[in-house]
Amino acid sequence: MRAVGSVEDDRREPESDLTLLCLRLAEGFRLDEYQHPVAAAVAVAARGITGLGQTKFAERFGRSEVEVEAAETGAVAFIDLSAEVGDLLEASQRFDLFQLADLDRAFRRLPVESDAAVVDWVQGQFAGLNVDARAQAIR
């Protein structure tokens, strides 16, 4: 499947899961003291799906470069990431957003009642996701 906004040709690799890579990157960002390391990794991954540089990515989705840079450097919270980020990851089918949301929550040490906000965001981002999001996300 071609990702939303993708400008790359279809190369010969099978569609491998990139969730773990995203998680590891987030762990690294956390060590680098990013404010929202998981969100940063997710934002970077989304742009990676398109293959675009920051400027073209911003143009394509009607954002400013400053906004894109802010998301990728962890200045934007997971639940505040722009819609295209979720769309890109969902369309690529190579990321488990619930795992990423779990890690974000773990990093932020949210109280249990805050799970609902994350789940709502995930559900809102991924139309057609045919799973019980709440059951997946709350452990």
């Binding site: 790359e8 190369r11 690799e13 099978p14 491998s16 990139l18 890579l21 990157l25 990794a41 970077v44 991954a45 742009r47 990676g48 799906i49 293959g51 675009l52 540089g53 920051q54 990515f57 990728e72 190579r94």
Partner: peptide, 20 residues
């Protein structure tokens, strides 16, 4: 080159295209 310059999005591209 992009990864060396700190562009981690390029890292995802590299992995996607050359993972095997």
């Amino acid at each position: 080159a992009r990864i060396g310059d700190g562009d981690d999005a390029a890292f995802f591209v590299l992995v996607s295209e050359f993972d095997s």
